[in-house]
Amino acid sequence: MDYHTLTNESLAMMYFGARGALAADDELNRLGQESRFRVRATPAWKKHTADLEAEMLGRGMVFDLIEWSEDR
């Protein structure tokens, strides 16, 4: 994806979407249900969020990094 062509707001929305999908999966797993988005199990999710983070950091945007540790 050509991240540098996106607006700051678009990058943030995509990043928050990934964060939300991860939170939903974690909650489903906590409840003993199957993940809906499979964020932790799909390497493309981590690449996508890493690419978003790199672009956002390059622009000097402030955001909370996604915590990938399952030990949270």
Rank of each mutant, 00 (worst) to 15 (best):
F63M: 13
G60M: 12
M56E: 07
I66T: 03
M13H: 01
L11H: 04
Y3Q: 07
D51P: 02
E34I: 08
Y3N: 15
A18D: 05
R59F: 00
D25Y: 04
A54F: 13
D51E: 05
E9C: 02
L11P: 08
A44R: 11
A41F: 11
D64L: 06
Y15R: 06
N29I: 10
W68H: 04
L6K: 14
R36I: 05
E9I: 05
M13T: 07
M56W: 05
R72I: 11
A23V: 06
R38K: 12
D64A: 12
K46S: 13
D64S: 13
L31C: 13
A50G: 10
M13L: 05
D2L: 15
T5F: 11
S35T: 07
M14E: 03
W68F: 08
E55W: 04
M14Y: 04
G17V: 02
R59D: 03
G32F: 08
E67F: 05
R59I: 01
D64C: 06
L28Y: 00
E67H: 06
L11D: 06
S69L: 11
R19Y: 06
M14V: 01
S69G: 09
M56I: 04
A50L: 10
E27M: 15
E67T: 09
S35L: 09
F63R: 14
R36C: 07
D51V: 02
F16C: 02
L6C: 10
A23N: 12
Y15H: 02
P43S: 05
R72M: 12
E27H: 12
E67K: 15
E70K: 14
H4L: 00
A50I: 09
F63S: 10
D26C: 11
E27V: 11
R72S: 13
A50Q: 15
D71K: 06
E70D: 14
R38E: 13
E55N: 07
R72N: 14
I66H: 01
T7W: 01
A44H: 09
F37E: 01
R38D: 12
L11V: 05
L31S: 10
R19M: 12
K46Q: 15
N29W: 03
F37H: 00
L52Y: 09
F37S: 01
G60Y: 13
H48L: 08
N8C: 00
P43T: 06
R72Y: 13
W68N: 07
N29Q: 13
S69Q: 15
R40W: 00
V62A: 13
L31P: 05
Y15C: 00
N29G: 01
L31F: 12
G20Y: 00
A18P: 01
D51G: 01
A21I: 04
M1L: 06
A12G: 02
N29K: 14
R59Q: 05
N29M: 10
D64H: 08
D25H: 03
D26W: 14
G32E: 00
W68R: 10
G58C: 09
R36P: 02
G32W: 08
L22V: 08
Y15M: 06
R36K: 14
T49A: 02
S35Q: 14
D26Y: 11
R59K: 11
A54Y: 04
S10Q: 07
D51F: 00
A12M: 03
L28A: 03
F63G: 13
I66R: 00
L65T: 14
L28P: 01
G58Y: 11
R59S: 08
E34L: 09
L57I: 12
T42E: 04
M56H: 08
L28D: 01
L57T: 09
R19N: 08
L31G: 10
R36N: 09
A41C: 12
